[in-house]
Design a protein around this nucleic acid. Structure first.
Lengths: 244, 244
DNA sequence: CGACGTCTTGAAACATGTCAACGCGAGTGG
DNA sequence: CCACTCGCGTTGACATGTTTCAAGACGTCG
């Protein structure tokens, strides 16, 4: 069963560094989640933090009128559950079968207080989270439906690359799994599900990708996709290029 | 003259707490900026951090194709200049005449390393920055032009309230100064300047505000404006209500 | 007074949203 | 094993919201 924690999404893999603060999860219980299962409910007391061991999770906020924004998708080694308020403002649920470890927020605080190096690592993670979010703001504010979808596919590719520790050129990476629904994608990109479908169609028509089944696309022209997504304008990929 | 630093925006006032880390600016030089003057240029080395003493600043990112997203507006006691990369990915410029103090990033790092309480305060600020950014993502992804403008006006009102330490009901606060151009507002809200103009017109037509001159609006029906903005769906106002 | 930039407004073009139909595959119960 | 239903994805036709292009109003500055 999912334990409710503090719902501010926070995400970043360990990458090359050792994320020292992660050892607060050393003796933590492993939690298994089925697709659709809720880990964090908006409004619950924010007293737990989580780290993802496997699978994909989704962070979302639903407004009083029912509109929902997917704030991010989370992958292995992503951290989740911190916020400035004492209650979560978002929900987190599993997209694929997933495993997470959890620990009381108090324990993490303690750990950070005791070890300056852990605190520094944590702070660095926060900077990366913020940089990623700025990328998302830029996309939502300035890019068209097709461009946002291109960004999204590269974002999935990117995280799989980190999760599976593959080199950037690995052709495996061009087969992108999209286990979330079209509506989830739409709510992430600020679009309706029909628009997402049409954007997929448009990318296929232009020869940038092929759709095999709805949960899977094959990138055909990575260069063109990157051009469309405007990767040059993003902070996160630069970190990536530099980091690996 | 503006000193170039690292351009990841970070913002939060000291509010009720003492932001202990801010004393790294104690002996710092005061920098005066005229409207339009640039403090940070995207691409410059990110080796300085700043704190705003007075005035309003604007953080923006411009893509390779010229599209620009305004990432945030900054006010007194807002902190600016940290990022995960070693170069800024955004520019910061003055909107009104402004004063900022600056200090080398190294000095801040030192301060945070030496004083766990300062580091804790800094971390808390980061959480609030992230919560604010999540609100922005929700707005850009889910809200209409008129709603976004309502959110924006309340955001200006909110920061003035903090800056001038006024109670929430103070009628002074209903006179909102909008010193930035319509294009700046548009780039912040993901809209074109004409759409911003029309949204102002629409809010006036509905009787929620009056426009006296372009740089000034008078809120007539705060309740209705808050309803339109959907303040219930945001994390930052709750912090505010709780905090003051 | 004239020139310039910004703001506003209008009309038309465009992108995205809405509504509806259909196809498909998974799961269920006959 | 089949028929049915259901949810999801896709596609089409049309509605709406936003952008684009253009013109005029207004204020500022020379």
């Amino acid at each position: 069963m999912a334990v409710a924690g503090h719902p501010c999404p926070m995400k970043q893999t360990a990458e090359d560094r050792q994320d020292l603060f992660l050892d607060v999860f050393r003796d933590a219980a492993l939690l298994r989640l089925e697709p659709g299962e809720v880990l964090i409910s908006a409004g619950a007391a924010a007293d737990q933090v989580f780290n993802i061991v496997s699978g994909m999770l989704m962070v979302s906020r639903t407004g009083g009128d029912g509109r929902r924004q997917v704030l991010s998708f989370l992958f292995r080694d992503n951290f989740v559950g911190l916020t400035a308020t004492d209650r979560y403002f978002f929900s987190v649920e599993a997209v694929t079968p997933a495993e997470v470890v959890c620990c009381p927020r108090r324990l993490l605080d303690q750990r950070l207080r005791d070890d300056p190096r852990a605190e520094r690592a944590f702070l660095d993670m926060m900077f990366r989270v913020i940089d990623d979010m700025l990328d998302q703001v830029y996309s939502l504010g300035q890019r068209s439906a097709v461009e946002r979808l291109a960004v999204f596919l590269l974002y999935l590719r990117h995280w799989r690359r980190l999760t599976e520790r593959l080199p950037d050129q690995d052709p495996q990476l061009d087969a992108i799994a999209t286990p979330m629904s079209r509506e989830d994608i739409g709510d992430f990109l600020g679009l309706k599900k029909e628009t997402v479908s049409r954007a997929f169609g448009e990318l296929e028509r232009r020869g940038l990708l092929r759709r095999t089944d709805p949960q899977r696309v094959q990138i055909v022209d990575l260069q063109a996709l990157r051009g469309l997504a405007g990767v040059h304008d993003f902070a996160s990929p630069r970190r990536l290029v530099a980091g690996s």
